[in-house]
Computed example of a mutant assay.
Amino acid sequence: MTPYSTTTTPSRFLLLGDSHAGPIGRAAKGAGIPFSGGPIGAVREFNAGFFDPREDDVVFRKPEADRFYRTFLDELGVAGLGGLDVPLVSTFGFSAHFVATTENWQVYRVRSAREGSDKGVAGFAPGFLSSGLFEDIVRATVRDALAFYRHARGLGLRVLAVMPPQRVPAQSDPAVFMAAQDIVREALLALGVEIVDLRARVTDETGFQRPELCEADDVIHGNLAFGRLILADLLGRGL
């Protein structure tokens, strides 16, 4: 995992995330925008059980992730997250393709859909994807990502969360992907987190990411052009 910090001048934000943070970091580095941070692990690692809160900080349970994090704090000249005086930008919790892994949702499909006939949306009973049960499952799946943002907001930080590329790999359910990311989005808005949501700008008529914004030979990531759009949005918010 490669961080993308650039610290020749005072950083304008701290970037913490999974691999989806990569294009953001590359875009900022290429544009000469000073920042600290970058991806510190894979998308599957930042939903549950990945950190422990401290009074004015966090500790990442994976040693490599915590080592990267401590390096970023050193670059910023602070001892913990609570000492941050620049905004925090993160992609944690928005690994919607992981949440939407098709096999995990088979038990919730109606019998006729599992046997091959259509029933409701993506084989679910009508209303399932907008139900309280579905929301509870999604929130439970990303519970510690939500807890991370809640802790950061409790420390008084300005926090911005970046929604994922609108790409769904073959092993994931597109309907679950779409519904799950909206649940995470609403949960974070309720915490006072700002959401970088570029869906209207990066998708085509299918609702999925336009090819020119997709990483080549890759089924989930956005490319540098996508990262530049995210960076432009961040700069437009005053970062």
Rank of each mutant, 00 (worst) to 15 (best):
R143V: 07
D144G: 08
D144C: 09
D144W: 00
A145F: 03
A145T: 09
L146P: 10
A147Q: 08
A147F: 00
F148L: 15
R150Y: 00
A152V: 09
G154C: 08
L155M: 14
L157V: 07
V159L: 06
L160E: 12
L160A: 14
L160Y: 14
A161P: 09
V162T: 06
P164M: 01
P165L: 04
P165Q: 03
Q166C: 12
R167S: 05
R167C: 03
R167H: 05
V168I: 10
V168P: 01
V168R: 06
P169S: 07
P169H: 06
P169M: 09
A170G: 12
A170Y: 01
Q171Y: 11
S172R: 10
S172W: 01
A175L: 04
F177I: 10
F177K: 07
M178T: 13
M178L: 14
A179E: 05
A180D: 03
Q181R: 15
Q181L: 12
I183C: 00
V184P: 04
V184D: 03
R185E: 09
R185D: 08
E186F: 02
E186D: 15
A187L: 03
A187R: 10
L188C: 04
L188M: 10
L189M: 13
A190M: 10
G192L: 07
G192I: 02
G192W: 02
V193A: 05
E194Q: 12
I195W: 01
I195K: 04
D197V: 01
D197W: 06
L198A: 13
L198Y: 03
L198M: 08
A200R: 15
R201C: 01
T203F: 00
T203V: 12
E205Q: 14
E205G: 14
